[in-house]
Write a protein that binds this DNA or RNA. Sequence first.
DNA 1: CGGATGCGTCAATGATACTGACCCAAGAGG
DNA 2: CCTCTTGGGTCAGTATCATTGACGCATCCG
Lengths: 179, 179
Amino acid sequence: MPAKTAAQVVEAPERSPLPAGRNLLFLREEELRLAQDLLFFGYRDFTAGADEILAELGMGRAHHRVLHFVGRRPGITVGDLLGILGITKQSLGRVLQPLVEEGYVTQTPGRTDRRQRLLALTDKGAALERRLFERQRETVMRAYREAGPAAVEGFRRVMRGMMGEDARAACDLLGEPAR
Amino acid sequence: MPAKTAAQVVEAPERSPLPAGRNLLFLREEELRLAQDLLFFGYRDFTAGADEILAELGMGRAHHRVLHFVGRRPGITVGDLLGILGITKQSLGRVLQPLVEEGYVTQTPGRTDRRQRLLALTDKGAALERRLFERQRETVMRAYREAGPAAVEGFRRVMRGMMGEDARAACDLLGEPAR
DNA sequence: CGGATGCGTCAATGATACTGACCCAAGAGG
DNA sequence: CCTCTTGGGTCAGTATCATTGACGCATCCG
């Protein structure tokens, strides 16, 4: 990952009578309105495909999130998963319990601390997660292909910039090599 | 069943230090996993600030969406708003009715078609919408400033690419000059 | 007139989230 | 051994956001 801080100030004033320097310091109203629209529609359509699959199985988006993050960090503790999802123990329990009962997720006691229940995907769980992943891959790959590699890097930087400190740390951890 | 045809369609001209073959597939998978993480955390934190304000007023995200899109297209019909939001009449009614009763939104009969109820924000509604807007502006402005103008353009292209046809059309309409 | 359209509303259901309280088992420290 | 804390599960109640199906009403239109 190139950690370039190249902030190109040279920006063509497309449809704006404002000077370029001001664009950097003052986010014009219409730009933010557009961002709101993009996030609303984009996020909705990003999740739409996976939602269909989940609905067939009587699951919701929350189940997918559990499958995703458990798949990303096998052996994660319940407490860490709660921190990532930002929900309460009870909310997680309502989703996690069926996933365990139906054989998508395993719970194994921690070696050093046997109070912990380390979570991992079963083959069945990994298969479902992959199915959901592939569906979303179509959506994201199309967007990436249309937008081009440079746009993808920009997308990542902006999305990351909207995250708070906690989310950034959690996101960084998820991207690291095997724990 | 990987017929070699699919694997060989990979674009050749890229002479970057990127590894090829399996590693390329691995990178793509990791890229998409990262995209999933970014969208989850980014969208959540993007809406978090406005959600706090809404919670104080006993409202939810759905109320904000109505205020946003009605403010964006004053005089919009109920049917058009339903199309944009992608929800049912009943779901909208449960949110819209309180907004009208509490004086955030007005309903006025259409001039040409008196069956229509054209929606618009009152001063009170516009003030609340602006309050929510300013809160989100802080989040997005910080992200835009950190990422730079080129990244912002990339972000827009990618988000737009993830939208379906309907959402793109709706999004384009919203960005057009005053109807 | 009769059908289609725009809108509101009824009832029932489900997914996702919350708070507060309580319990159990296991680690940590006196 | 005996508390205190921590990781985890669970119960009860509540709220928001969404669904489907059906019905009513006013209005537009051929």
